[in-house]
Nucleic acid binder design. Structure first.
Lengths: 209, 209
DNA sequence: ACCCCTTTCATACGTTCGTTTGATTCAAAC
DNA sequence: GTTTGAATCAAACGAACGTATGAAAGGGGT
């Protein structure tokens, strides 16, 4: 068994705390304490707190992007024009499946992503690479073929709708306030509900002028 | 014309800055500087930074809640069981209409709300009153009658989906990263797109077991 | 003219933050 | 055994933060 790499332990601790308290709400000291490392280790291994966030974000996003890409490949290998429902499944599914286990059904990771996306600070959007853009553009093209008559702008609006529903929905689960006495959402049920919800939404006819 | 009330100017400045930089990213000094007031004015008029946020949030949410409530009243006065599409319009419409003008189509205010909802800190959810719960429960009941066969849990999931789409969608518009060369979403178009998208989503048949 | 109460002001306090520094440890390379 | 370079460490830096304090200002009512 490999020794507990300090760098990895800092990544784990940061992922946990950023998700739990946000970027600004998490001090470097809290991260190194939880990781059992020295305060200066963050500067040494990552350069700065912002670059640590970027490393955390990349590690979380990467498997999701890969699964989205693979899912689309699988669909396109079968037919050049997959139906909307299957595109939704391939795009939104990994947002549920590719979250680390023991993570309250991925809610903590979902919150991490939302925290990053929503944050107004500039440095929070510095970490994205071209891989994300590639996946996005491929799905845009596929959805465009499956939904002829939809303007590119409205299509882009709907794609963002998918992200909004899958991400924010679970964030709100995470920090509470459901109406009194509603059993918490089970992980697998939420996934199916989201696919149902989003497949119907994506399949809506184009909005008239 | 009334004199520029210090308290109001602080509210305005705080609303602007909280939306632009988030709660933790905004210092009390930045607020009072923008408001042209003294640093201690925040403590004097509001007690603390957190209570200032609560006041800002209440001022923004109140007209939205009122419009949602009035819209539902109007529908119910016509028929005891309004169709799904009209319920969506009444619920989501005010999220577009009741945002202050000169606000980049409400995107800045939408971002303020999302910033507050998403924030993990405890004090960010201290300001909500019973008015919000009342509106939410009334729409839950109305949607429940319009969508028989939907479990309360899935219904709650869908309601949150509405909020997610209307709010987050415009936040992402606000801090950028659309695919290359897509004209920015016009305010009125986004509103219609959202209603189309959400009406179809809400009308989806219940997810089978 | 005096007092009272609200509002504003300059200043300071104590804390926490991200980052830097220079010494120290330690295992492998020579 | 000595050297080397990566990794860790305690300690400190200056800056920024939220809040508190006590004095000053302002304007009615008497």
């Amino acid at each position: 068994m490999a020794p507990p790499d300090t760098r990895t332990q800092i990544l784990d601790a940061a992922e946990h705390l950023f998700a739990e308290r946000g970027f600004r709400g998490t001090s470097v000291r809290a991260i190194t304490d939880l990781a059992g490392a020295n305060l200066a280790a963050v500067s040494y291994h990552f350069g700065s707190k912002a670059e640590l966030l970027a490393a955390v974000a990349r590690r979380v996003i990467e498997p999701i992007n890969a699964a989205q890409c693979a899912g689309l490949d699988r669909l396109l290998a079968r037919t050049p024009d997959p139906p909307v429902t299957e595109l939704v499944e391939a795009f939104a599914g990994p947002l549920f499946d590719e979250m680390p286990a023991g993570d309250e059904g991925g809610a903590r990771t979902a919150r991490l992503i939302v925290t990053i996306i929503v944050d107004p600070a500039e440095e929070m959007r510095r970490w994205t690479g071209s891989a994300e853009d590639t996946v996005r553009d491929r799905y845009l093209a596929a959805f465009g073929r499956a939904l002829p008559g939809l303007s590119p702008e409205e299509l882009w609006f709907r794609i963002r709708g998918i992200l909004a529903v899958t991400a924010v929905d679970r964030v709100e689960v995470y920090n509470g306030r459901p109406p009194a006495s509603l059993s918490p959402v089970a992980g697998e049920a939420a996934r199916r509900w989201a696919i149902t919800f989003l497949a119907a939404a994506m399949s809506a006819p184009p909005t008239g002028t």
